[in-house]
């Protein structure tokens, strides 16, 4: 049952390739160091955004606790590099440790539903940060320094980050189109009904949590290697977990492109806007969150779609029901009345 692709469909197929080609060829134009740095950090954030979206967007399990995986990725990579391993081995190790942690966290917390799960993840992330602040192996609160023998190469970092975001994108797309992705969407809407059709919600959530954690761990490792110095109050910060959550919500929760858009916007805002208005970033994110919740649950992507529709004057049902399902619970679209 293959339907012919419309114009929008073709754009969706071609756009990632154009973007990837552009990003890979960009260094040939001798861009400024600042632009490379900006794109690097945006790619790292977008990777975490895509990772979070797998659990929060596709499976509907909103977690405040992704700083744990980001931080574990950072520290594992650093410790492995310190032990003489290649940084790429470090990223894999970081992903593995983050996945392991995701199982330990998921086993108790996935027994909880909705807001109770959210609150539990807040507890987990705060507890982990306190512990990491006190462990000897992490160097404690004073931080950890990575030293590399090689000279600093911004482009190597850049390409690593692009590879990570491409990986996250491909993983997201594959899962979204797979039987597993369908099961996750079913779980998001009605766990019990999904179980009645043979889906095991608990193990499904554990696995997608692990995949999301692995991607976030890789991003943490890549971030740490370039930063070369970091401390628990930075990578394990509550604020880091919030940022990872805000990106897909701002971009458009539940859709892969929404997560990408959110990551890009966040990266740009964080690096450009915050430099100029260092005291206002919480205000910006907070008001954005309020506006999104009350007016446009589909985030920026929903806003773009709405604009697009204005020009095309095409009748369609407004917005994606997925965002409504996640944010407003089982009632779905008709649950919202304004």
């Amino acid at each position: 049952m293959k339907r012919p692709l419309g114009a929008a469909g073709w754009i969706k197929v071609i756009l990632p390739w154009i973007l990837l080609a552009g990003l890979l060829l960009l260094p040939a134009t001798h861009p400024s160091d600042n632009l490379i740095r900006l794109l690097f950090i945006t790619a790292v954030w977008t990777t975490t955004s895509l990772g979070w979206n797998l659990l929060g967007g596709m499976a509907g399990q909103v977690s405040f606790g992704f700083a744990v995986f980001f931080g574990l990725g950072a520290y594992t990579t650093a410790l492995l590099m310190h032990a003489g391993h290649s940084p790429y081995f470090g990223f894999v190790g970081g992903a593995a440790i983050a996945m392991l942690a995701s199982f330990l966290i998921g086993l108790p917390t996935f027994r909880l539903r909705g807001p109770y799960f959210v609150i539990a993840t807040i507890g987990v992330t705060e507890a982990v940060r306190v512990i990491m602040n006190n462990l000897d192996v992490t160097g404690g609160a004073s931080g950890y320094r990575i030293t590399e023998d090689k000279p600093f190469s911004p482009l190597e970092h850049y390409y690593t980050a692009i590879a990570a975001v491409a990986l996250a994108f491909v993983v997201s797309m594959v899962i979204a189109g797979s039987k597993f992705g369908l099961a996750l969407r079913a779980i998001k809407q009605d766990e019990d009904a999904a179980a009645d059709l043979g889906v095991n919600p608990f193990t499904s959530k554990l696995w997608i949590h692990a995949i999301a954690a692995g991607l976030t761990g890789i991003a943490g490792g890549i971030y740490a290697r370039r930063a070369a110095f970091f401390y628990p109050g930075d990578v394990f910060a509550f604020q880091t977990g919030i940022s990872i959550l805000l990106m897909p919500v701002i971009g458009g929760i539940g859709t892969v492109w929404g997560a990408v858009l959110g990551g890009v916007v966040f990266g740009m805002v964080e690096e450009e806007l915050v430099v100029h208005f260092p005291n206002l970033h919480l205000l910006i994110y907070g008001s954005l969150l309020i506006v999104i919740i009350l007016l446009e649950p589909d985030g920026l992507l929903g806003l773009l779609r709405r604009l697009f529709r204005l020009f095309r004057r095409k009748r369609e049902d407004s917005g994606s029901p997925d965002a409504d399902q996640i944010l407003w619970g089982r009632g779905g679209v008709e649950g919202r009345k304004f």
Binding site: L182, A183, R185, A186, Q189, D190, A193, A194, L197, V199, S320, P321, D322, D324, Q325, G332, V333
Partner: peptide, 12 residues
């Protein structure tokens, strides 16, 4: 599953 098509519902 209200946010899915009828076919997707059965596909699960």
């Amino acid at each position: 599953f209200k946010a899915m098509s009828v076919l997707e519902n059965v596909q699960v």
